[in-house]
């Protein structure tokens, strides 16, 4: 194809997206569109999978059966989200094995938030409330993104997320209404998860490189700073409601803008964690790779069993 033909195809492609048409797997697409989607969707899938680790840590120690079934169901949902997203990503012609290989080798990223430790039960509350809360804000606009399989996966994901956030908030609320020690535990979890949750919504608009292209392809509908403001505005009143303090001395309501003003985010910490120097980066990858490698014999055995059964069927037919 000549450069000119490609340019004209690209123009038609952009026009389709601008008209709100969906792009489906077998449609022609610019190489950059394919690559960007593989990167974002796989990063998203990896985050769901790695995100199970900090919470899985507390399943056996949940304080009641009610809390345990809820946490177990939530973690199972996250596995499901990872699977929806991996299979959506595979429609772009990359194999599951390649995707895992990119995660395990460190070539692909996952959300930095999961590199923080979960040291008390209250962390299960803070994660559901804040981390899933921030994830919902990130994800809802993706339900109408331009790539069909991604949009459909996100519709399912978003439907399931709201229970995650509610179960987390309920944990925080109960602790905040409990003994002074329990309330202190909830406050401590909020103190530790607040800033990393704000960082989850991505670098500031000034420092963010992909925004314009992503807007065009509807991978983004609002900027990181707008999403962050939305998250803060909706979360602060929730903290007030259960009597917990947001750990930001600069936080205050701004009558003029109709939003909360907030303090400086420590972006140096963010980039350190992204680069692999967070408190749990290594631990998470070891757990993930260990689970994958430890399960190899199970996958092999299942495949061998399936082949044996298949051969038997063929023989009987003869």
């Amino acid at each position: 194809m000549s450069d000119e033909q490609i340019r004209s195809l690209e123009e038609q492609f952009e026009a389709r997206i601008a008209r709100d048409e969906k792009i489906e797997p077998k449609d022609w697409m610019p190489e950059k569109y394919r690559k960007t989607h593989i990167r974002q969707m796989s990063q998203h899938a990896h985050s769901e999978i790695v995100g199970m680790l900090p919470e899985g840590n507390w399943i056996t120690r949940a304080p009641s059966l009610r809390r345990k079934v809820a946490l177990l169901a939530k973690v199972q949902d996250e596995a499901g989200h990872g699977l929806y997203l991996y299979s959506a990503c595979e429609t772009l012609g990359i194999s599951r094995d390649e995707l895992y290989e990119q995660l395990h080798s460190g070539k692909a990223k996952y959300s930095s938030i999961f590199n923080y430790p979960t040291v008390t039960w209250a962390d299960m509350g803070a994660i559901g409330w804040l981390v899933d809360g921030a994830a919902i804000i990130n994800q809802v606009p993706l339900c109408s993104t331009s790539y069909g399989p991604y949009a459909r996966a996100m519709v399912r994901v978003c439907k399931e997320e709201s229970f995650h956030q509610r179960q987390g908030f309920e944990i925080m609320m109960k602790l905040a209404q409990g003994t002074p020690e329990q309330k202190e535990m909830a406050q401590d979890a909020l103190n530790r998860w607040w800033w990393p949750s704000l960082m989850m919504l991505g670098p500031t608009d000034a420092a963010s490189t992909h925004t314009e292209q992503s807007m065009k392809w509807k991978l983004k509908r609002k900027t990181n700073d707008e999403l962050r403001q939305q998250f803060i505005d909706q979360t602060v009143p929730q903290a007030d409601l259960i009597g917990l303090r947001i750990p930001d001395p600069d936080l205050k309501w701004n009558e003029e803008t109709g939003h909360y003003d907030f303090g400086e985010i420590d972006w140096e910490e963010f980039w350190q964690v992204v680069k692999g120097h967070g408190p749990c980066n290594r631990e998470r990858m070891n757990a993930r790779v260990g689970a994958w490698e430890g399960g190899q014999w199970v996958r092999d055995a299942a495949m061998a069993h399936a082949e044996k059964k298949e051969n038997k069927k063929v023989k009987q037919a003869i």
Binding site: L83, Y84, S87, A88, E90, R96, R152, A153, R299, A302, M303, H305, A306, K309, E310
Partner: peptide, 11 residues
């Protein structure tokens, strides 16, 4: 609804 990997139809 989507797709998934499995060793055989039953799985």
């Amino acid at each position: 609804f989507g797709s998934l990997h499995a060793a055989d139809a039953e799985m």
